[in-house]
Amino acid sequence: MPETANTRQSSIRAVAGRSALLGLVLLLAACAASVEPGQDFPTPLVDRLPLRAALHYPPALLEYTHQEQDSGQRKWTVQLGPVSQRMFDTVFGALFTTASRIDDIAGARQLAPAPDVVIEPTVSAFELSTPALSGTPHFAVWIRYQLELFDAGGAPLLSWPVTGYGQAGTGGMSDEASVERATLLALRDAAATIAVELPRQPRIRAFLDGEPVHDEP
C-alpha cells in the first residue's frame, strides 16, 4: 500500500513521542540511584562464647530501605535489609557455638537444644553524606543498629546500640559504587564492633559467670 502524507506524519509523531518518552525515562534514571550491597563478610577471627544463640530478624530489619533526596535533587535508595542479615549471620555464627534463625521470639522455646540467648537486631538510624553536602570528596554512611538480647526465658539481658561508619572517595568510581563501598565499610565497622565488644559487655560477662543480670522491677 502506498504511503500517504497522513501516515508519514503519524509515523513521525510516533517516533517523536517514543523519543521524548525515552528521554524522560533516561532523565529520571539519571536523577535516581539505587544501591544494594551484595558482598559477603569475612568470618571474624575471635573466640567463640560458650553460648547457643537464636537470631530473630524482624521485618523492620529485613525490609529496611533508606531513601533520601540529596542537595543535587538526586534520589538515593539504599537497600540495607538483606546485607544486614548476611552481616549478622556471619558475626553471630562466629561468636556463638550455634546461631539458629527463628521466625519469632516465642519460637526460641521450640529449639532443641534450647538457646541461651535470643538476639533481635533492628536499624535505628541511617545517614548518608554526599560530597555536595559535606564539601569533601567523600561519600559517608553512618548506621546505628539496636541489639536486644534476651535470655532463654525471654527476660531482657542487654539493650545495646552499635554504630558503624564508612567513607569512600569518589576518585575512579561512580557515585553509586562509592555509596555502596561506604555502606559496606559501615557494615564492616559495625560487625567489627559486635565481634570485639559484645563479649566485653559487663552484662554478658556477668551472664557467662552465672551472676544475676536482670533489672529489678
Binding site: 569475612p42 571474624p44 575471635v46 565499610l185 564492616r188 567489627a192 565481634a195
Partner: peptide, 9 residues
Amino acid sequence: ALFPWLEPR
C-alpha cells in the same frame, strides 16, 4: 583474613 583486627576502628 585478620578481620576484625585491621578494620579502621
